[in-house]
Design a protein around this nucleic acid. Sequence first.
DNA 1: CCGCATTTGTGCGTATGTATT
DNA 2: AAATACATACGCACAAATGCG
Lengths: 234, 234
Amino acid sequence: MSLWQSIADTLRAEIARGMWRPGTRLPPEAELAARFGVNRHTLRHATKVLADEGLLYSRRGAGVFVSAAPVEYKLGEKAQFHRNIELAGRVPNRRIDSVVTRSCDTAEAQGLQIAAGAPVHVAEGVASVDHRPVAIFRAVFPADMLPDLPKVLSGEGSITRALAQSGVPEYKRATTRLKATIADEAQAARLQIDPGGPLLRTEAVNIAKGRPVERSIVWWASERVTMVLDNQDS
Amino acid sequence: MSLWQSIADTLRAEIARGMWRPGTRLPPEAELAARFGVNRHTLRHATKVLADEGLLYSRRGAGVFVSAAPVEYKLGEKAQFHRNIELAGRVPNRRIDSVVTRSCDTAEAQGLQIAAGAPVHVAEGVASVDHRPVAIFRAVFPADMLPDLPKVLSGEGSITRALAQSGVPEYKRATTRLKATIADEAQAARLQIDPGGPLLRTEAVNIAKGRPVERSIVWWASERVTMVLDNQDS
DNA sequence: CCGCATTTGTGCGTATGTATT
DNA sequence: AAATACATACGCACAAATGCG
């Protein structure tokens, strides 16, 4: 095995076991090169590979840093934001910017299996992990099933808890549709990414007792999250 | 702009406009370095970037080649892809442009659960629906499990049949990871979309008898496909 | 605000190993 | 067997960005 490969493996293992915490700076290239007894180019070859993998990033004049690993968001029946993020050992948060009640459009009607034009509650906001924004969401609920949801939502950061308080203690994700899109300026600003960057758009329907209770559209900053579907679990 | 960047841009543009046909060999590094008036290392930096993008691949002792070969031979459709598209009432097709045997990188090693640097077969090509390209794929197989896969591939023209002949009659998808990316010029050209457009990148591992047999990365033209996950079916 | 040391980014020269042709 | 060509690695030098006193 080549030198740069073994160095990359060593550093990868050290990062994996927490020897270098996310956000911290690695020792200077010269120092690391001396530690491994190689030329600086050889060390740079190793760190370049790790940077390609997303484990490291470097800033000229500043140093090489351990990057925060992208969140792995598990898809499946029990896909819930808070639960997923907490299982990954991160700090989830949801900020609801607006809650309005209006009549639904045809796409929303089809997803929720209600009559076109029926009243719905629409909540919009930003979801974050470790206090960094990762997604913009728009959640649509049938108003007749959840008459007092707006009141509960404004006091809650969790949709699951809000639904529980509105008489829906449990729900499952029925379907998820995924697409890639490009961030416009407004989306980029809210997610604190560059305009034109890649977004992963998920469109999901949650059901309780066989009836749709929520249709959500979420735009994820693809740099900060990876969707994972594991067929062995479920 | 740095030298290697402008060189990479030049080569990328030349490949995009067909000056170097897919499958052809580029001039030797020394010659290209002389053409651009730079050191061989500088040129290698540029070609390395293009190799990372998937435009080029190098074979030690042989040369640097343009990744996607033209229609040399048409191989059969992968069962999953084929069935999915047919169920949607469309006409599926898969074109394998190249099959190369090389040593794997660390990411591939992790996915296939083999030693880093172990030999793998790599098949690249384009998947189409209704005779329009929808995805670029790269499939990686462990060479020790499937020693004669390249021969079988060229003889049979079917990945599933080739796997069956190699003692893998059945396999299933274990995990799928999804991300959104931006199409670079080469990808856009192959998919006949605009550069900068959204791509849905799936990274999947197929297993047979508990052992990984294939790791595929597929870049889908997001304009032409939507991924759907239905938890009620399975 | 300036200057300076630090640190990464880029580039050249050279040498050796190893696979392919 | 020999020539060709890529892979790896070392040493040196300078540019560019950062951060601190």
